[in-house]
Design a protein around this nucleic acid. Structure first.
Lengths: 215, 215
DNA sequence: TGTAAATTTGACCAAATGGTTAAACCAAAT
DNA sequence: ATTTGGTTTAACCATTTGGTCAAATTTACA
């Protein structure tokens, strides 16, 4: 964003090459398992150049993690904010888009979750400097809307936090746990699982709406 | 199981000390992040002794992973097998017990999932030698029961695999994604989140049953 | 008690790894 | 052409790390 280099644009700018390579290696192997040499090789540059752009492995990791996190979380905001939609519409919109998004970045959920389990402190730092995340406290809005629709008997009485965890979890889980599910239930048939994920968008939407719809 | 030592039982047998320490370190730091020295220190033994019992880091990891996996997966079998219960009863039984179980081993889900994402091959080996896992193909039973209850108009028409993923996912997700959810929605209030998890058992059960119950 | 086998340890090693440095390179301005 | 600044590299370094080994210690048991 704010890292303009003085150089005239090359086919691919060095910093981009580094971040692309770092993203791939870190997301596949994690902070501890990633090797600076491997990142340098993948980026097609010298290892010393890596340290020229990002002094330490930790600094490079931090950057990669922040980018991944910003893919992982912000879409949730859209659901909370767009006030012109009903709860049902919001859920449908979110599930469809979030599963699509994560399918395009299949390593991000596992990466973010596992690195955050190893070192929850990262999140504290991100929250401090990232407005996007703090704004999720506008989650209050969502809660208000739900309680209002409960009053109007559109949906059953329900706790908004639990609902939110369910909606997000039902989208993320089959991607994060893909190796297990695909291995055990789908006999490791990759195509079958992709198909499953595609059809699942509608299933999840209906599953949730059926559950919360007032009779 | 089959690792009987000839030694007369000491307060704590060395192999147990090793496995306990290895479990803790591996589950917290992952395969790549764990240090043999740290495991040895935690077990209160010499590092060479570690290599005496488990020749390599990989072999030790394998053992720890298998134990973790056997906690993670087998309870699912109970749901599929106990034939005397209705689908509703099975779901209630599973959610209650599985969330309890995982709460007692909060690092296992993240550990299993993240190591399996890094190296899905582990699963292939486990499936080959582990009967418990293969038996999950008795998942067919569960499917049959569901389709039968669909016919009897007890539950709506539903895909058994999607249902199963939802049930398991709704239990595992809030534990695996705890750092994120607790950090963003619960302002890092650990107690509040524990309380949330406890209450959630009932919520999840009702959420699922509401969704699949025929009108 | 004596001895063979199993267990435990301290010292050590080679390879891998994150990081540094001084020199080379290169584009642009003077 | 020379200087100046950022960029890139090869060579190098200190530390960490998984793993080994021979010696010491303990245990089993004849």
């Amino acid at each position: 964003m704010d890292n303009l280099k003085t150089k005239t644009d090359q086919p691919v700018d060095t910093e981009t090459k580094i971040l692309d390579a770092a993203k791939e290696v870190f997301q596949k192997k994690g902070l501890a398992g990633a090797r600076m040499q491997e990142i340098a090789d993948l980026a097609g540059i010298n290892k010393a150049l890596l340290h020229y752009y990002y002094r330490t492995k930790d600094k490079l990791f931090e950057k990669v993690f922040e980018i991944a996190f910003s893919v992982f979380v912000p879409r949730i905001k859209e659901v909370v904010l767009s006030t012109d939609k009903s709860v049902f519409e919001k859920i449908e919109f979110f599930v469809e888009n979030y599963i699509n998004l994560l399918s395009k970045h299949p390593f991000i959920p596992g990466f973010v979750i596992s690195e955050l389990n190893r070192n929850p402190q990262i999140l504290v730092e991100i929250i401090e400097k990232n407005v996007q995340v703090r704004e999720l406290n506008l989650f209050e809005n969502f809660n208000n809307q739900i309680q209002e629709e409960v009053k109007r008997c559109v949906i059953r009485p329900i706790d908004a936090r639990n609902l939110m965890v369910n909606v997000v979890g039902l989208c993320i889980f089959p991607i994060v746990a893909r190796p297990i599910i695909q291995g055990i239930i789908f006999n490791n048939d990759k195509k079958a699982y992709d198909e499953f994920l595609t059809q699942r968008k509608q299933f999840v939407t209906e599953f949730i709406i059926n559950s919360i719809k007032a009779k």
